[in-house]
Design a protein around this nucleic acid. Sequence first.
DNA 1: CCTACCGATCGGTAGG
DNA 2: CCTACCGATCGGTAGG
Lengths: 194, 194
Amino acid sequence: MARKQAADYEQRREAIVDHAARLFASRGFLGASVADLAQACGASKSLIYHYYPSKEDILFEVMDSHLLQLTGAVETVTGSQAPAERKLRDLTHRFMGLYVGAADRHKVLLNDLNHLPPERRAMIVTRQRALIDAVQALIAAVRPDLATPRARRPLTMLFFGMINWTHTWFDPKGAASSDEVAELAAELILGRTR
Amino acid sequence: MARKQAADYEQRREAIVDHAARLFASRGFLGASVADLAQACGASKSLIYHYYPSKEDILFEVMDSHLLQLTGAVETVTGSQAPAERKLRDLTHRFMGLYVGAADRHKVLLNDLNHLPPERRAMIVTRQRALIDAVQALIAAVRPDLATPRARRPLTMLFFGMINWTHTWFDPKGAASSDEVAELAAELILGRTR
DNA sequence: CCTACCGATCGGTAGG
DNA sequence: CCTACCGATCGGTAGG
């Protein structure tokens, strides 16, 4: 028989990850203590350790959940029949939407990766690399002039630089929307603007 | 009369900052202890505190020294008589050169700014903003088509995203040189490639 | 699910 | 009497 406590087990786990994302994003992984997290969750430290074996496991969960969303966007877009240029624009908008919608998790993924233990870090890095490779294939298809064998990776990373760096400055309440920023980044990569 | 030991005072201070940059870059400000720093310098903690009143002062020095270099590059370039496009290309190359040459300090500046006490952080942020404004003026001059009032800041930040993000992936021993990457970033902003 | 704790290590400072 | 510097240890707090 199922136990009663199992009913909100997943909700509690998710709430912990959500508060952890907020704390880690604002203070850094080392700057936010498990006691801080417990307080934010309105619980004791022991409760946290009931749901997760270690602070690093919570960090992994924050990153993993976000990366899952990003990977989903890539699969959706690359599975379509649209031309490469359309796919790249579409994916850029989806990425920006996820970056803004999950800004805390995104910051944590970008800032605290080296606080994961090696095996966990390797898992994340492998999946990040798959994301990058998918985008690189689109960019190579759209910009055969620039994406020479030696420039292909740098070009792709400059693209990720544009959109990943938004976490440091983009304000959802600011003048420009995330779609406008995504469009601008796509235009720059596509080189269609002159 | 000058004391003999004062002769290497500045050298020792600089050595501390240099080791701190390396440690903070690889483990983060909170992940590297003053004891680690002392060990890296082959000295005692007390020696560190003889030269700097606190760990945060060392962090400030790491960032300040790097920002001074970047500001110098901006002044050199904007003071020339070259056309805006030439200035932007030139500045992009100089930035990339400084980013690679002072990779540790650059990482620290980008990753650990929020571990500075508020007043110190405000000083750094103010000077960063001046850098950004100077680049924005060049971009606005070069791309009047894209740099509408509302798109001006996002466009500038996308540019900084391209070059700042290089600290996560660029390898000086890799296939592409920092000048090639700088050129690619400049091309994308200039939109001259199609 | 909490209070009460642990081994260790933190940034910073004492006397000499 | 100064400066530069050391070994040892301070009061608090970290993850668990």
